[in-house]
Design a protein around this nucleic acid. Structure first.
Lengths: 225, 225
DNA sequence: TCAAAAGTGTTAGATTTACACCCATGA
DNA sequence: TCATGGGTGTAAATCTAACACTTTTGA
């Protein structure tokens, strides 16, 4: 700690975004083909360099917005990845973030324009550098968060059925749960409100639509699944 | 992702070490006076720049070793901190790590030589930049880890009493627990072995010394406090 | 009329919590 | 002999997990 800044080497710093979506009862990740050497053409997360005038968090939001057009998305840091040879070209330290989006909010034309694909987290292709590791770490964080924090709703439409919520929970954790026990726990949480609306898309009978009431949650923030 | 590396700016990247120790039934953090402008003289974590030929993890281990002389210490990443103005001099992104050491393994002369102090985590002085935030985030990680992973033993001597273990647990979580219930849970974990040794330093009667058996833990890694 | 998803309660077992006294010893 | 920390068990309450049938309706 007696040294000076100028004696040290600078590095490139980037962010990589793990964009989670929920579709066909599966947890999916948005990935594309890397457009840049080295590694051009490999499956890769979408990322970008951190510029001099933005925080890391801001860089992550910017990159996500560039790609999806979405703002105010739920994003959290996964961590910094910094193996010396993680980027074959230059020394690049990358900070991974995961984002939770509702697939329906995301314009599918944009997805095609960038040639991105939603891939099942349980069936990812080989990926560039340490990107697979980033995704798996993000999933692990999600698995612990989803049990005690109301993050699921970020991945669902604002109105959702209990079956959707259950399938999401199962997809994140990779294991099935009992329907009756699951619903019992939901009923105990007053901030998951039943509406009068019915979704007929998933069944003939129709299922009640629910909504997450954030104000009510803040009054009594007890979430336990 | 169609841009080139050279169009981007590089930044300084550093690591900051949150060194936890357990002493006088309190969770403590090792901090010193910053030796460097800007911020010279403020209370600060110990850190160092990441050099070109080492991973972030290696940089953290190196810095810890420089300071304490210790190797193979339990260290985990807290996360990257990157507010634009977090370092008043230059743009520096810092990756925080926490380390768990047994205070007795650490040569107190070294502590004095570097003018470091063990401060109670519940009574930290104002600290340089975002260092307080780093410590609090690290503590939060510890609080969740200590419930499901055998990390406590990193902070204790290899032989310890159940009271010590309990006080540690209480110090990390900031709340007291019932002695009988605590010991019942310990008894269920076979990898916490009772030895024939007695520690007479804490009481007249003496307390049985226990030991963490890592091989046994690996056979049946179920930890729950 | 039937296939497919929605919706609903109970019970046994496991886990958690609360709680108070005797023991061994050195000063 | 007494002050100090070490050590121990039980019972009530709560939580968890397992389990199956009826409802609705569009095709």
């Amino acid at each position: 700690m007696t040294t000076f800044y100028k004696e040290h080497t600078k590095v490139f710093a980037s962010v990589d975004c793990i964009i989670f979506g929920f579709e066909d009862n599966k947890l999916k990740v948005l990935i594309g083909r890397r457009q840049m050497d080295p590694g051009r053409g490999e499956w890769s997360l979408y990322g970008g360099f951190i510029s001099a005038d933005e925080s890391i968090d801001d860089a992550a939001s910017r990159v996500l917005n560039e790609l999806t057009g979405l703002c105010s998305v739920y994003m959290r840091q996964v961590g910094a990845f910094g193996r010396v040879d993680r980027d074959p070209g230059e020394r690049v330290i990358s900070i991974a973030y995961y984002a939770l989006i509702n697939v329906k909010d995301y314009d599918d034309r944009l997805r095609k324009q960038y040639q991105l694909e939603w891939v099942d987290i349980d069936n990812m292709p080989p990926m560039y550098s340490d990107h697979r590791e980033m995704v798996l770490q993000a999933r692990h964080i999600m698995q612990t968060k989803i049990k005690t924090e109301p993050v699921s709703f970020q991945l669902l439409p604002s109105l959702f059925t209990l079956t959707q919520l259950q399938r999401l929970y199962e997809a994140v954790n990779g294991e099935e749960v009992d329907k009756r026990n699951f619903r019992k726990r939901i009923k105990d949480m007053e901030f998951i409100e039943k509406t009068n609306l019915i979704d007929k898309s998933g069944s003939k009978r129709g299922a009640a639509l629910y909504r997450f009431n954030n104000n009510m949650y803040k009054e009594d923030p007890n979430f336990k699944l």
